[in-house]
Amino acid sequence: MNKRRPIFNPKRARAKTQPDIVVVEKQLQIMPPAPHLCQVCAVAHEPDEAHNPQSFYYQYTFAMQYKRSVTWADAIAHCSEQKQELWIQFLTKLGIDIHSPDIMGGIESKEEMNRRLYGSNSMG
């Protein structure tokens, strides 16, 4: 029996959410996100959730518009005060300054993130 591949493959779909980059007359332009993605950060999330400041699309378009790097404060600015407070508490626990362009707060691994969240004895 011939096995058919599924029409929707989440692993493949994820790769296709990255923005297309086009060079036009020696000027870099970025194509808009697919209609089902957030039009600000090009990531699938609910409208009341934070934008993803790790998104290349968000970083690039934000820098072009505001001439500075995106911060977590920018990514959560449209959220309710309650959601902003939850994000601030979580990011503060990780040692991340929401106003810094260092959106990772110096975290370079999952293990480092777990150490910051759960203490030095965590097993991640």
Rank of each mutant, 00 (worst) to 15 (best):
104 M>P: 00
12 R>Y: 09
34 A>N: 14
31 M>T: 15
46 E>I: 13
84 Q>C: 01
40 V>G: 02
59 Q>L: 00
70 V>F: 00
84 Q>V: 00
21 I>L: 14
102 D>Y: 00
6 P>W: 00
23 V>E: 12
106 G>Q: 08
94 L>P: 02
123 M>C: 14
102 D>S: 03
24 V>Y: 11
77 A>K: 11
61 T>Q: 08
76 I>F: 08
2 N>Q: 07
49 E>T: 08
72 W>A: 07
21 I>V: 14
8 F>V: 14
99 H>W: 08
36 H>V: 07
120 S>I: 10
97 D>E: 06
80 S>T: 06
69 S>N: 15
3 K>H: 04
83 K>M: 07
12 R>S: 12
23 V>W: 10
23 V>L: 13
124 G>Q: 15
64 M>F: 07
119 G>S: 15
9 N>K: 11
17 T>V: 03
96 I>W: 02
36 H>F: 13
21 I>C: 11
102 D>P: 03
106 G>D: 05
72 W>C: 06
68 R>A: 12
81 E>K: 10
74 D>M: 05
112 E>D: 13
91 L>M: 04
31 M>E: 15
90 F>P: 01
91 L>N: 06
96 I>S: 03
56 F>G: 07
44 A>T: 01
27 Q>T: 14
71 T>E: 05
3 K>R: 12
123 M>P: 12
57 Y>K: 07
105 G>V: 02
56 F>M: 12
2 N>M: 05
112 E>S: 03
91 L>H: 01
117 L>S: 05
30 I>R: 15
101 P>M: 01
84 Q>M: 04
1 M>C: 14
31 M>I: 15
7 I>A: 06
10 P>Y: 15
23 V>M: 10
89 Q>H: 09
3 K>L: 11
83 K>E: 05
40 V>W: 03
100 S>M: 11
22 V>R: 15
75 A>V: 10
102 D>T: 02
67 K>P: 10
70 V>A: 01
86 L>K: 11
59 Q>K: 10
16 K>E: 08
54 Q>N: 13
123 M>D: 15
73 A>M: 10
98 I>D: 01
13 A>G: 09
124 G>L: 12
80 S>I: 04
21 I>A: 12
17 T>W: 11
62 F>L: 00
52 N>W: 01
68 R>L: 11
119 G>M: 15
114 N>Y: 04
46 E>M: 14
25 E>G: 13
20 D>G: 11
16 K>A: 06
6 P>A: 06
85 E>L: 10
4 R>K: 12
86 L>H: 06
66 Y>D: 08
44 A>P: 04
93 K>G: 02
59 Q>W: 00
99 H>C: 01
98 I>P: 03
79 C>N: 05
28 L>Q: 14
80 S>C: 02
58 Y>D: 09
68 R>W: 09
76 I>A: 04
37 L>G: 00
111 E>W: 00
4 R>C: 07
116 R>M: 11
124 G>K: 03
24 V>L: 09
73 A>W: 10
25 E>R: 08
10 P>F: 10
76 I>H: 06
11 K>Y: 13
64 M>G: 13
56 F>D: 01
47 P>N: 11
18 Q>E: 13
39 Q>D: 13
76 I>Y: 03
70 V>K: 03
49 E>Q: 09
100 S>V: 05
121 N>A: 14
74 D>I: 08
46 E>G: 06
32 P>W: 06
49 E>Y: 08
56 F>W: 09
1 M>F: 12
